[in-house]
Design a protein around this nucleic acid. Structure first.
Lengths: 150, 150
DNA sequence: CGAAAATGCTATGCGTGATAACAAATCCAG
DNA sequence: CTGGATTTGTTATCACGCATAGCATTTTCG
């Protein structure tokens, strides 16, 4: 049955996939594959993608509040709490009051180490990512994506 | 404080965003924006993005099993259960036994109507999406994305 | 001054994805 | 043909990201 049905199923199972021509669909699938890969690499360093994003944002600054980070990363204030609480519990960041209302998120020495690991992972990753795109399309990739969200 | 700090924060808050030059980051942000928009439009028709994907896949076929759909959409078998159960409860699809082990997912008349709505939404959406990409980058978009997951 | 906005937070629910385990059916190598 | 391996559909959880509502405090600004 399974092999006999090659005629109209197995022979061209996904070739007839009506989703394959949709840019939106391709965008989602590509993003999912990419995130899975990046997450796996980050996990090797004991980090999550969100951690790395925060580390990159707070580097060399002592004025990045939870709200500012959230705005930059498009993460709700309420959801920054968990993220930062975890990072603080891991010793990656500390908090330093700015005034009686705002609190700055600052890098710890351990966080600085993690940042360097994250930076190395990201650099390798981005290179590998771009390498998979045919050369003639490569330079158009980032501008096209940025047009969709920036 | 907030206004006075324009010097090194508010004047160029996200301009100094170290994430903005990373294709992987742009890919995620673009996909998120895209999915939010598409989800909203689908919701207007009482559909979810996953519903629409399934509808497109089962159209005109009586041999698409849960497993096949899952493979095409990269959704785990276990997670197809929820998705299809909901679609069945909405009257969008029915099940028809193929043999004693496999069950085909087939479109109902209501599902066919929903499919046409979904198709219209998707067409508009994809057009709007591509329109936001500068013309010179447009033709490179789909090939670049497909290289990342197909 | 006083209303409005911003900040940080708790609690909670929703949607999606991942995993483990299971029974039944099917496949396939010996 | 027989029996182990694989496939299919399913249940039951868990993890994670994201959204909303609400609250207290502080800051901003007309």
């Amino acid at each position: 049955m399974q092999d006999g049905s090659d005629q109209d199923i197995a022979q061209a199972p996904l070739a007839a996939d009506p989703l394959a021509v949709l840019p939106g669909y391709a965008l989602r699938r590509a993003a999912n594959v990419m995130m899975a890969e990046l997450s796996a690499r980050m996990a090797d360093a004991g980090l999550r993608v969100g951690d790395a994003s925060v580390l990159l944002l707070v580097e060399g600054r002592n004025d990045m509040t939870s709200s500012l980070i959230g705005k930059a990363l498009d993460i709700q204030r309420a959801n920054m709490v968990r993220l930062l609480a975890r990072m603080e519990s891991l010793g990656l960041v500390t908090r330093a009051p700015i005034d009686r209302k705002s609190i700055a998120v600052v890098l710890t020495p351990l966080g600085a180490e993690a940042l360097e690991q994250a930076r190395a992972i990201i650099q390798d990753f981005e290179e590998d990512l771009m390498a998979r795109i045919p050369a003639r399309h490569r330079d158009h990739f980032l501008p096209a994506l940025n047009a969709l969200w920036q």
